[in-house]
């Protein structure tokens, strides 16, 4: 009986009351694995991944949401991990470049085949962003490059790929090969 009570107590989620110290406890699923963390609540999700979970595949470029190097998938959606706090993602599902299908995700293979990088620093963000972008296209979302936003049909032209990937900057300017790699994965001729 005592055991049951204890079990229930442990299973309970901590009440969402403000803590008085500088630390917050969170539980977040990263690449399919549940992680429990005690963090200074100022910690960005990016720093949490890199410094606390040692998942250094996700890169810190500008740390201000301007370059996209920190892009990860949160609950399936591409997001800049530098511009959000880990504490805001209690019980969320995060996928980083390390969590893609082994040994290589089709986009990773295409980036290698197309030489879609030079230094490679932006690449994990580019690939996570492209995964999120392709599911947005699959859901029929329009973009700034879509001539008629009221139309249900999204033709993934090269102009569409470039516009939809504009949140990921590549200072080596590997853009033509990045577009080609994404084109390889979605199929269809370049247009």
């Amino acid at each position: 009986m005592f055991f049951k009570k204890w079990k229930r107590w442990f299973a309970m989620e901590a009440p969402a009351k403000p803590a008085t110290d500088a630390v917050s406890r969170i539980a977040v699923t990263v690449n399919g694995r549940r992680r429990e963390l005690e963090l200074d609540r100022r910690t960005s999700l990016l720093d949490t991944l890199r410094e606390h979970l040692r998942l250094t595949g996700t890169k810190k470029g500008c740390d201000h949401g301007q370059c996209g190097a920190c892009t990860v998938l949160i609950n399936g959606r591409r997001t800049n991990s530098c511009l959000t706090l880990a504490v805001m993602h209690d019980h969320d599902d995060v996928v980083t470049i390390e969590g893609l299908s082994a040994p290589l995700h089709p986009l990773q293979a295409a980036f290698i085949a197309r030489d879609a990088f030079q230094c490679g620093y932006c690449t994990p963000g580019q690939i996570c962003s492209a995964i999120g972008m392709l599911s947005e296209v699959k859901a029929g979302w329009p973009s700034h490059a879509t001539a008629d936003v009221s139309s249900d049909l999204v033709a993934l032209t090269d102009a569409e790929i470039r516009e939809r990937m504009s949140g990921n900057v590549c200072r080596c300017a590997a853009y033509p090969n990045i577009v080609a790699a994404i084109r390889d994965v979605v199929g269809g001729a370049s247009r």
């Binding site: 591409r78 800049n80 999120g132 972008m133 990921n168």
Partner: peptide
């Protein structure tokens, strides 16, 4: 409204 939203920020930022 859709056009204005889509002209702002990036795909990542608009998701958040």
């Amino acid at each position: 409204l859709s056009e204005a939203l889509l002209s702002g920020a990036s795909g990542q930022l608009r998701n958040k």
